[in-house]
Design a protein around this nucleic acid. Sequence first.
DNA 1: GTCTATAGGGAGATAGAC
DNA 2: GTCTATCTCCCTATAGAC
Lengths: 214, 214
Amino acid sequence: MTVATLASEPSSRDRILDVAEGLFARRGYAGVGMKEVADGVGLGKSSVFHHFASKAELYSAVCARILSTIEDRLVRSLAEGGAPQVRLERLVGELMELLAAHPSYARLLLRSLFEDDDLAGDGPEEQAAQRAIGGIMESMATLLKEGMASGVFRASSVPHVLLLTVGQIAFPFASGEFGQEVLGKDVFDPAQVKRLKKEALELVQFGLVEQGRA
Amino acid sequence: MTVATLASEPSSRDRILDVAEGLFARRGYAGVGMKEVADGVGLGKSSVFHHFASKAELYSAVCARILSTIEDRLVRSLAEGGAPQVRLERLVGELMELLAAHPSYARLLLRSLFEDDDLAGDGPEEQAAQRAIGGIMESMATLLKEGMASGVFRASSVPHVLLLTVGQIAFPFASGEFGQEVLGKDVFDPAQVKRLKKEALELVQFGLVEQGRA
DNA sequence: GTCTATAGGGAGATAGAC
DNA sequence: GTCTATCTCCCTATAGAC
């Protein structure tokens, strides 16, 4: 870990992470070669190995960076306070905007969940990633619990609703060409993102908020 | 394509498809080797190549088989008729049961959507797969449109809701160890499946069905 | 930090005997 | 239909010069 420079040029390390993020998102861990990453950055393959000791380590670093970014955003969002209803709406909206602003995020994260050999190695990056996932899920679970306890949200099983909702929010931004075919337009087009946000918020809200059904 | 035998023993071709389905679901296209598939079936690698000319063809055949199964089930479900509300409830329930009964399905299908080199080759299996996807999505879209036209469903954008809902339904069954950690129990355990179905139905229903909000 | 060269293994696919 | 043997290529990773 080198010290951040004041100059604006991104370090080789960061440029490698950027390229690897895009490739891993599109083709998965096994589908990407280190040579491909190196070519994308404009370096030799050996130079990539100088910054990341192995392909697995590079992958972990990519995942950890994404998860930390998401966790930061969610924690900040929840810290702004407000009624559970308001916090939930803000959280879903910001999460979707974050995923929309970084097309690799949803795709890479969902892919990483599908790997059976989980990234539960013992490297520091893996630990950071696991911690971030834990933080993300626990913040959301806490919010749901509070809302249900106060009667604002419909009583239901927090973990099950959590799992369903995560899929609902993340899938559209991971669905690639499929999503494009369903919508008829690019999923990441601002107008489509806006519409997805609106529909998701209405689905979540009217599905969770108590409204006269005892 | 050989003729189906009356004997109950599955053909080598079917056994290859079974093994490949599980492996592709867990490790993705690039993460699986033909040797691995052959070992799983108990054959030599060359024997697998006798049944499927290439790895890509094997993958397409696996996808096509799954998609046809799902399409059949959905078409049959929708043909049973009933009010849009009833048909939607039945469709979501049956789809989730199908995904729950075949742990590879959701994982493999979501993975296949994430590949950027889509399976849009011109082989017959690819065409069958594409046709099945089209049929599945169109049936669901038609159902939503009918419900909205008759005022039973809240007016909204059919494609966007479709995309969000597909993610909600499929993700839990594709989420693997992540889902297990969130729920504290195996996602495919009958009790968990039942609960997921209940929560999903309530989310979809109260999010779509008009209930006193002009 | 970046490079060339290479080790060592495994991949997809083919040839041809049985 | 299944096998053994093999071809060719590309993979992760390392060695060591600059």
